[in-house]
Design a protein around this nucleic acid. Structure first.
Lengths: 205, 205, 205, 205
DNA sequence: AATGAATGAGTATTCATTCAT
DNA sequence: GATGAATGAATACTCATTCAT
């Protein structure tokens, strides 16, 4: 294996381990010592690859967001497909990503308040990027007449993401106490969210 | 001042300071030293009133949730009022409470994953309690024919709360970087959320 | 109940609780908080009866030693009885007392090195007092010709006490790990100690 | 100086300092802060070499006991030598070791009662090991007819050790108050102990 | 590229004690 | 006689980080 490959491995294994720890414990809740143990890399070596804990955090989040963006972008489909199906795909992808790795918006929330300006500017950028696929679908929908023309698209996206995050958070709680009564299966949750999002709760006259 | 009043003062000032710190930094992010400084009470005195950090956390959350529950319950109104107006009131109250003090669901998210069973059982109970006013309004709505009869009410409540939380989180980010472009004013956000919640994004035929 | 009786009760219940705690954890290992809980007396009330932790310690030890002295004195018997029987009685009493409450020499050892002069002078006095019954028996023995005339009686007493303490310490260890192989029953141990003490290990020609 | 030598130095100087502190104050009575000061190593560095206080304690005791075992083993001599002389040597070595560093049985006593099972199992093993030289000498003595054949050797060893410990404890007390009346010089104490151990206190007919 | 050694500042928590009532 | 409130100093231990090698 080449020298670079080894380095790559170390760097990646650090990020991999960090990802899991951050997902589980958030920024304050994970330590460089744990990270060293989980990544199999000596504590001081962590500083060979990253300037400090914060940089590791940012790199993990960046990598994660990039991945999510790619996944979402891959699922955006074409304007030939019905808006409903395109949204279904995006919701499913977003839900799975957040669920699997506790990333993104959840971590934004967790660290909110301690972020300095630079930090949160970074989040803003990432957020804008991963909102894009949703934007595309909704704007196509508007054009095709499937979506209300007066809709504030960005706000609508935030609403959708909030809805999904809410369910993921619930599921996380449930994982702790093993009470599955309230939390529906993945498909049910997606169907519910989509129906609610498209049609609202009001009865159709 | 009576002995009891003094004690009350210390205990309350601890909880008040803790509330602010927890809202800002979450469980892991606030220290007993900070709490001591902010509350004006010696570090060891904290342990006169509470067994440990965790108990302080729980007390803060409990107090906060109780307050929210009361506010929501006071706003539930009667079935004589239109569902839309009743929801508006609940959304506004919930939004303001979360916004003001960074409580509730946001903290659930922040600490999710580190909660032991007892901890998350507590959260479940609180959540059930503050869902009740929403439940009342929605069920009344179903009965009156304003709300779809096939709606899963509990899921719909979680969805609504998720939507609001999303906006609050956005606003928190914005507070850090001072970019107000994306985040609408409180009333706009409530109107948007209500419209979306009631009618969905689809265009009415 | 008279006022004084109540006070007596509080004082005694403090000493009773302290006795148990000291027996179990030694001086450093017991806290005023624990003592307060075990005695059912408020923490600050402890200082109503005793100046500080150290005084409680001294009082417990004093009370305990006095009791032991009385027990030993009661068992000293008369010069009409055989030395062997008198020693048996003293050994049994001393063994039981130390065993039951982990007191005396064991605690002297535990705190040895941290004692200031006053502290250890106190121990010296106590020790001299409870050595007296042994002294009486051994001197009687010398007079009757049962004990070697050239024996340094005080040293011989310390030796005997050391032997017993050793077995008690062993038994304490055994209580922790439940291995009873090495530690003999009380009677066996007394018989062994007495035989060794009287006749030594050498084979009689 | 090589890296290893430095490390060795730190580790050893920690153990050296710990040894003194433990000898003087026992387990509960020495603090990591003191240890840091006495060893000239930063408090946090202590945790670089040992997991916790308890591990330091165990390491000190282990090292100490190993040393004592070696000293005793070196003094066990051959069956050609008289039992009396061999015992003299063992007693002298044991006495000096305990006296110099306040180790072993004294610390067992000091911490007895707080030991968990693992802890006291460790003590048992050590004790068995350093009893071995005594065992050898006594069994040789039995074989040669110098020691009573019906003697319970293990109990007899515990008795001997108890006798010595008793004197050491006395000497510790005396060191505090400067009253040397009762405590004899080293040689006198050994002679006394040996005489008593071999022949008992009874007058020979 | 990688690490063991080392640390100052920090963590939550407990200590024995004082004091006003 | 009795106590709740309060505290400064200590407890064992962890933190993110630096540096020589």
């Amino acid at each position: 294996m080449s020298v670079q490959a080894v380095a790559q491995n170390s760097r990646e294994s650090i990020l991999d381990a960090a990802q899991q720890l951050i997902a589980r414990h958030g920024y304050d809740g994970f330590s460089m010592r744990e990270l060293s143990q989980h990544s199999g890399v000596a504590k001081s070596t962590l500083y060979h690859y990253f300037q400090d804990k914060r940089e590791i955090y940012l790199n993990v989040l960046e990598r994660d967001m990039r991945l999510l963006q790619e996944k979402l972008a891959a699922m955006v489909g074409t304007s030939a497909e019905p808006t409903r199906d395109r949204l279904y795909a995006l919701i499913a992808v977003y839900n799975d990503a957040v669920q699997e790795r506790g990333i993104l918006a959840l971590n934004v929330l967790r660290s909110a308040g301690e972020l300095d300006a630079a930090f949160s500017r970074f989040f803003r950028q990432q957020r804008d990027a991963f909102m894009q696929p949703f934007r595309t679908v909704l704007l196509d929908g508007v054009e095709q007449g499937a979506v209300r023309g007066d809709l504030d698209v960005d706000m609508a996206i935030l609403s959708l993401i909030g809805m999904i995050n809410g369910f993921v958070a619930q599921r996380m709680l449930v994982d702790c106490i093993g009470d599955e009564a309230v939390i529906p299966a993945r498909e049910m949750m997606i169907e519910h969210t989509l129906a609610l999002y498209l049609g609202g709760i009001s009865r159709r006259s």
